[in-house]
Nucleic acid binder design. Structure first.
Length: 374
DNA sequence: TACTCGTGGAG
DNA sequence: TCTCCAAGAGT
C-alpha cells in the first residue's frame, strides 16, 4: 500500500480542520501532562469514553500524581478501578507507577522503548502518550485508526493478519503530519468514534468522504473485515453469603487470572466442586459440598437468595447465591476474611459480586427483614 | 497464532 | 433478549 504526499494531504488536512470544530471536549485534553494522558489511555483500552470519564475524574482526584499512585496500596487502586473491568490494567498501572518512581525518580520516561518496557504499555499506548502529551511523533494503531485506515484505503483483507497489520502500522506512520501530530492523533480517533463508526458510519458528515476508498466502492459496511463470532460456553457458579454477628465472610481471589486480587463471596464453579462428570447436582448441594471441603463448615441454607447472570469476554455465568447465618465466627486465614458489614464496601469486588454487596446493604439497613428469600 | 482478560451501552 | 463491541496488552 502506497501513500504519496497527495494522498496524505487529502487525508490529514480535512481531518485536522474538521477536528477543530467537531472534536470532542474530553477531560484529559485539558490536562496535557503525561500522567493524565497515561491514565486516560489505559482506561480507554477496550472501554468507551462515556464509561471512562467518571473513573478518570475520581482516579485523578484520588491520585493527582504518579507518586501518589505509586505510594497507594494495590487494593485501594483496585477499588478505584472497581466496575471498569480488565483489572490487569490497574495492577500494571500500579506496578508501572512504582517503576517510574524508583527507576526514573518520578519523571515520566520520554523514550518510546523505555515506555513500552513498562507493564501494560504497548506500542499504541506508548505512542499516544508521547505524541499527545510530549509532542513527539509516533504512530498508533487502535481500533479507531485501524477501522478508518482500512476504509479510507479500501483494505479488504483481515486487518488482524500479521502482514496487513504491519502495513497498517506503516500507513499510520506515513500519515503522521510534521506539525501538531498529537492534534492529528486525537482527530483520527474522534473521527473513528463519532463518524467512521463500526456500524452505520455517517459518511455524509465525514471530512474525507470524497477520497475514501470504501465509500467510493460502497463497501463501508464490509470493511474492516469482521472476525467470525465464536460460541462461548455457559457455566453455573455458586456463592455463599455467610453472616456472623456484624460480619460477613469474604475471600480474596489470587493475584493472577480472572478478576485477580478482587474480593468475593466464597464459592466456585459447580462443575469444579463436583467434578466434570456429575453436572446434574443442584447448586445448593454444590455450595454445601464446597464449604464442607474448604472450611469444614456445615451450612443450612433456605433456598436461593439471588440469581445473577453475567457475561464475561469468553464465558457466560449464572451465579447462584445462598445466604446463611452462623453462630461461631471462626478465625479463617487468608485468603478468607471476616469483614464488618460497615467496611464491606471498602473492598474491591467484581461487578457481579458487588451486586450482592448492594443487596446486602439494603437488607442491613432494612433491619429485621433478615434472611427471607425473594 | 490464539487465547485470556470485564463491563455496560447501543441497536 | 441477543449481538456486537470500545483509545490493547500479556502470554
Amino acid at each position: 500500500m502506497i501513500c504519496d504526499a497527495g494522498t496524505k494531504a487529502r487525508f490529514t488536512r480535512p481531518l485536522v480542520r474538521w477536528y477543530r470544530t467537531a472534536g470532542r471536549d474530553l477531560p484529559w485534553r485539558n490536562r496535557p501532562e503525561p500522567y493524565a494522558v497515561y491514565i486516560s489511555e489505559i482506561m480507554l483500552q477496550q472501554t468507551q469514553v462515556s464509561t471512562v470519564i467518571p473513573y478518570f475524574h475520581r482516579f485523578l482526584s484520588a491520585y493527582p500524581t504518579i507518586g501518589d499512585l505509586a505510594a497507594a496500596p494495590l487494593e485501594k487502586v483496585l477499588k478505584q478501578w472497581q466496575g471498569l473491568g480488565y483489572y490487569a490494567r490497574a495492577r500494571h498501572l500500579h506496578r508501572a507507577a512504582c517503576q517510574i518512581v524508583e527507576q526514573y525518580g518520578g519523571a515520566f520516561p520520554s523514550d518510546l522503548k523505555a515506555l513500552m518496557s513498562l507493564p501494560g504499555i504497548g506500542r499504541s499506548t506508548a505512542g499516544a502518550i508521547l505524541t499527545i502529551a510530549l509532542g513527539q511523533r509516533h504512530p498508533i494503531l487502535d481500533g479507531n485508526v485501524r477501522r478508518v485506515l482500512c476504509r479510507f484505503f479500501a483494505i479488504k483483507e483481515d486487518p488482524r493478519e500479521k502482514k496487513v497489520e504491519a502495513m497498517l502500522w506503516d500507513l499510520s506512520s506515513a500519515l503522521l503530519p510534521k506539525r501538531l501530530p498529537g492534534f492529528y492523533l486525537q482527530a483520527i480517533m474522534d473521527l473513528g468514534a463519532t463518524i467512521c463508526k463500526p456500524k452505520q458510519p455517517i459518511c455524509g458528515d465525514c471530512p474525507v468522504t470524497r477520497a475514501c476508498g470504501a465509500r467510493r466502492a460502497g463497501l463501508q459496511a464490509d470493511i474492516p473485515l469482521k472476525k467470525p463470532t465464536k460460541m462461548i460456553p455457559h457455566f453455573d457458579y455458586v456463592a455463599g453469603v455467610i453472616l456472623s454477628g456484624d460480619a460477613v465472610l469474604i475471600r480474596r481471589r489470587p493475584l493472577k487470572g480472572l478478576l485477580a486480587g478482587l474480593w468475593e463471596f466464597p464459592g466456585d464453579r459447580v462443575a469444579e466442586i463436583f467434578g466434570e462428570l456429575s453436572a446434574d447436582e443442584s447448586p445448593e448441594a454444590a455450595l454445601h459440598t464446597y464449604f464442607k471441603n474448604e472450611l469444614g463448615l456445615e451450612l443450612t441454607t433456605a433456598g436461593q437468595w439471588m440469581t445473577i447472570k453475567h457475561v464475561f469476554t469468553h464465558f457466560k455465568m449464572t451465579l447462584h447465591v445462598f445466604i446463611c447465618r452462623i453462630d461461631a465466627q471462626l478465625g479463617y486465614e487468608a485468603p478468607f476474611r471476616w469483614a464488618k458489614m460497615k467496611t464491606l464496601d471498602q473492598h474491591p469486588f467484581s461487578s457481579s459480586h458487588h451486586r450482592i454487596v448492594l443487596r446486602l446493604d439494603t437488607l442491613d439497613r432494612g433491619g429485621s427483614a433478615t434472611l427471607s428469600a425473594s
